[in-house]
Amino acid sequence: MTGARHARAAGAFVHEGLFYHDREGLLAGTVPFITDGLAAGEPVLVAMPGANLRLVRDAVGPTDAVRWADMSEAGRNPGRIIPWVLQAFIDQHAGRRARIIGEPIWAGRSDTEYPACAQHEALINMAFAGREATILCPYDVARLDADVLADAYATHPILVDDAGRRPSAHYAPADVVARYNKPLASPTEPVSALVYEVDTLSAVRRFVAGHGAAVGLDEDRLADLQIAVTELATNSVAHAGGTGVLRVWRTAEHLVCEIRDDGWLADPLAGRLTPAANGIGGRGLVIVQALCDLVRVHTTATGTTVRMYVRHPA
Rank of each mutant, 00 (worst) to 15 (best):
residue 8 R to Q: 12
residue 8 R to C: 07
residue 8 R to E: 12
residue 11 G to W: 11
residue 15 H to Y: 13
residue 17 G to K: 05
residue 17 G to S: 04
residue 20 Y to K: 07
residue 24 E to H: 14
residue 25 G to F: 06
residue 28 A to G: 03
residue 29 G to D: 11
residue 30 T to Y: 00
residue 33 F to K: 04
residue 37 G to L: 02
residue 39 A to T: 06
residue 40 A to G: 06
residue 42 E to H: 10
residue 44 V to G: 06
residue 45 L to S: 07
residue 48 M to T: 13
residue 48 M to N: 03
residue 51 A to L: 01
residue 53 L to Y: 06
residue 54 R to Q: 11
residue 57 R to K: 13
residue 59 A to P: 08
residue 60 V to D: 06
residue 63 T to R: 08
residue 65 A to G: 04
residue 76 R to Q: 10
residue 77 N to M: 02
residue 77 N to E: 02
residue 82 I to N: 12
residue 85 V to K: 07
residue 86 L to Y: 09
residue 119 Q to N: 00
residue 122 A to I: 04
residue 123 L to W: 04
residue 123 L to P: 10
residue 138 P to E: 11
residue 144 L to E: 05
residue 147 D to A: 15
residue 153 Y to K: 04
residue 155 T to R: 05
residue 158 I to F: 05
residue 161 D to T: 10
residue 167 P to I: 03
residue 175 D to H: 10
residue 179 R to T: 09
residue 185 A to H: 06
residue 191 V to T: 11
residue 194 L to A: 07
residue 201 L to E: 10
residue 205 R to D: 13
residue 206 R to G: 06
residue 206 R to K: 12
residue 207 F to P: 01
residue 208 V to G: 07
residue 210 G to M: 06
residue 217 L to Q: 05
residue 217 L to W: 03
residue 226 Q to H: 01
residue 226 Q to L: 03
residue 235 N to P: 08
residue 237 V to K: 06
residue 239 H to W: 15
residue 243 T to E: 13
residue 245 V to Q: 15
residue 247 R to I: 03
residue 249 W to R: 10
residue 251 T to Y: 06
residue 255 L to V: 01
residue 261 D to K: 10
residue 264 W to E: 14
residue 273 L to E: 14
residue 282 G to K: 11
residue 282 G to P: 11
residue 283 R to E: 11
residue 286 V to A: 13
residue 288 V to A: 13
residue 289 Q to Y: 03
residue 291 L to A: 08
residue 292 C to V: 03
residue 292 C to D: 04
residue 293 D to I: 12
residue 294 L to C: 02
residue 297 V to S: 06
residue 299 T to L: 04
residue 302 T to V: 13
